[in-house]
Design a protein around this nucleic acid. Structure first.
Length: 583
RNA sequence: GCGGCGUUAGCUCAGCUGGAUAGAGUGUUUGGCUACGAACCAAAAGGGCGGGGGUUCGAAUCCCUUACGCCGUGCCA
């Protein structure tokens, strides 16, 4: 459709130049004005002439009429004037033939904008906090981030996926205290991260109890907690390189990661780097020094800040009153390191929209520090998740662990699948791909900025606009093609409305990929997949394919099916979904 | 207080840089498997886009204002 738009636009631009020599309208401007009519009865492409009437000094109707008489393009079957609109109808057979041929020729690269050749992009996403539950709050950054990585790879970028693990901080002091006090190696080895989470929750509760008790006992209401003091001491030892604590810390990280990996494996996600927060501790002083040398650092109320008043933002905190570093400090150090290591052309950070100010602040600080790549930093925010309208909260138990969510989805799919496929191993394989796919599809259906109210019933539903529906459609194309044989090229047989709708849907893939990349919006691909599936299923329902008696028509229909399968597979991949041939 | 984001059918959401009677899914009612997979297709009912102004030939889309909700706003990350 994009090529068609471009050709039509340049033809119209040429025509305008001829008919209205005084006007200067480029083909690009015309391209911008071209749109798809709301109703296919009107045509396949339309040019509203209202805006033209100003520069051409003629009524829209008159312009439309003049243009309609002058235009002729092999791709266009007819041109019609309706109101102030110029409506084009494409030459169906030629158009569909070209689309299907292009898909067959380009194969898995069909739809790629190829704009990333020779460029590198690093993507920072998922980034769970070690020894804390990996729950649906992490689903957004994980699947949006990975989808963006796949989209960039598709466009030819060299991508570096970074899992910036939250593997440092005072929580490790608490964990070490709790472990030494209450736990043993066997329990952690057996229960993994769940045991660590339990320890963490327990010590936090006890610290709170101690604080409350001390506040009640003291006349001034001063809070104190021996456990909290012990935790601080253990973390200090960890920072100073105490061997026992280092070993424990490494172990906790490994245990947590092992479990996260299971979930990543189900999602088909791999990272190129797991350098977490701990990695950057020794890289911060140099940046702090640079800030100080350039006179950007100001002491305010004891803390070291960068004033962002001129930019309408609150100050960016670099060092606490006690001299220790903060979140922005580490992010700046990490960005500098990554620029040096990967030489990125773009660095994408996928985090909750709640962190928007934080990113705007340290991006600005990077600019003020004189790093000329400050404009390569991109924050991709997304809305927050709630469950049945309630905020996520580990304390009240209002969380859904990703592993539990996936297990539930897989089990539900398994129950349906086993009726269709006798082989248990095959069923298990399908159930995992469809179950996990259902969750991913559900999550990536909405604009990323919209807050999601996670509803189990919807996420695990199999009918309508769901993951199982699109995978079902894919399996359907596979099933047809498995039974078909012979050539799969379009013939010159006439095409019905269903076939044309399908061809048009296929042709729109490249422009949707471009938009998804430009807006960092995977849901555009999800929406596209639904459009394509609707077009294919309608076609499938109305047009017999394998049993079609006209050999020429049959061949075209098989070719359309093959093209659909190809595009669906590519599109599903871009939103982190598998495409099993049977479900 | 200031700033960001959101507000579209009963519910969950699309609606591109303003353009032709506002679209899906779900739910409700109903029709279609002796058909290439019914995890499918199709029909009906259902909103005038939170409220109010404005710009425009034309506004769910742009501007102003107002209400409600979420988030952020200095030593957590």
């Amino acid at each position: 459709m994009l090529n068609l738009k471009k050709n039509t636009a340049s033809a119209i631009a040429a025509l305008i130049a001829e008919k209205y020599p005084a006007a200067t309208l480029s083909a690009e401007e015309i391209l911008d004005m071209l749109e798809y009519p709301p109703d296919k009865a009107m045509g396949d492409l339309a040019l509203p002439c209202f805006r033209l009437s100003k520069s051409l000094r003629r009524s829209p109707m008159e312009i439309a009429k003049t243009l309609a008489e002058g235009i002729s393009l092999p791709e266009l079957a007819s041109v019609e004037v309706q109101g102030g609109y110029l409506n084009f109808r494409v030459n169906g057979v030629a158009f569909a033939g070209r689309v299907v041929r292009e898909i067959a020729e380009k194969g898995e690269t069909y739809g790629s904008p190829m704009c990333g050749e020779g460029k590198t992009v690093v993507l920072d996403y998922s980034s769970p906090n070690v020894a804390k539950p990996f729950h649906i709050g992490h689903l957004g950054t994980t699947v949006i981030g990975h989808s963006l990585k796949l989209l960039h790879e598709f466009a030819g970028y060299k991508c570096v996926g970074i899992n910036y693990l939250g593997d440092w901080g005072t929580q490790f002091g608490k964990l070490i205290v709790a472990y030494k006090k209450w736990d043993d190696k066997a329990a952690v080895e057996e229960k993994g991260v769940d045991e660590l989470v339990a320890l963490y929750v327990r010590i936090n509760n006890e610290i709170k109890a101690e604080e409350d008790a001390s506040a009640a006992a003291s006349a001034e209401g001063v809070k104190s907690s021996p456990l909290a003091d012990a935790a601080r001491a253990e973390f200090k030892k960890l920072e100073e390189g105490n061997e026992e604590n280092i070993a424990l810390w490494k172990w906790f990280v490994a245990v947590s990661l092992e479990e996260y990996e299971k979930t990543y494996r189900q999602l088909g996600i791999t990272f190129d780097s797991y350098k977490g927060e701990s990695f950057y501790t020794d890289k911060m002083p140099a940046q702090v020094q640079r800030l100080r040398d350039s006179g950007l650092l100001k002491i305010d109320d004891g803390a070291s800040i960068v004033d962002l008043e001129p930019y309408g933002m609150p100050p960016c905190l670099i060092l606490k009153r006690d001299g220790s570093t903060l979140y922005p400090t580490r992010d700046i150090a990490a960005a500098v390191y990554r620029k040096g290591t990967y030489g990125f052309d773009k660095a994408i950070y996928v985090t909750s929209a709640a962190q928007s100010l934080h990113f705007a602040q340290w991006f600005k600080v990077v600019e003020m520090m004189g790093y000329d790549w400050y404009d390569k930093l991109v924050h991709v925010p997304y809305g927050t998740v709630s469950i049945n309208g309630a905020k996520l909260a580990t304390r009240t138990g209002n969380v859904i662990l990703l592993k539990d969510l996936f297990a539930e989805a897989i089990s539900r799919v398994y129950d349906i699948t086993k009726e269709k496929h006798p082989d248990p191993a095959e069923c298990a394989d399908i159930a995992e791909k469809v179950g996990v796919g259902a969750i991913v599809f559900y999550y990536l259906s909405n604009n990323r900025m919209r807050d999601i109210n996670f509803m189990m019933e919807d996420a695990l539903s199999f009918d309508g606009n769901t993951g199982p529906y699109v995978q079902y459609t894919y399996a359907r194309t596979c099933s047809v093609l498995e039974k078909a044989d012979g050539a799969v090229a379009m013939t010159d047989a006439a095409l019905g409305e269903r076939e044309m709708e399908l061809a048009k849907a296929l042709s729109r893939f490249p422009e949707r990929v471009e938009a998804a990349l430009a807006e960092y919006e995977p849901s555009l691909i999800t929406r596209y997949i639904l459009d394509l599936c609707a077009a294919y299923n309608g076609f499938y329902h109305d047009c017999s394919i394998l049993s079609c008696e006209d050999a020429s028509v049959k061949q075209s229909r098989i070719a359309l099916t093959a093209a659909t399968r190809r595009v669906l597979k590519t599109a599903l991949h871009l939103i982190c979904m598998q495409s099993p041939e049977k479900i």
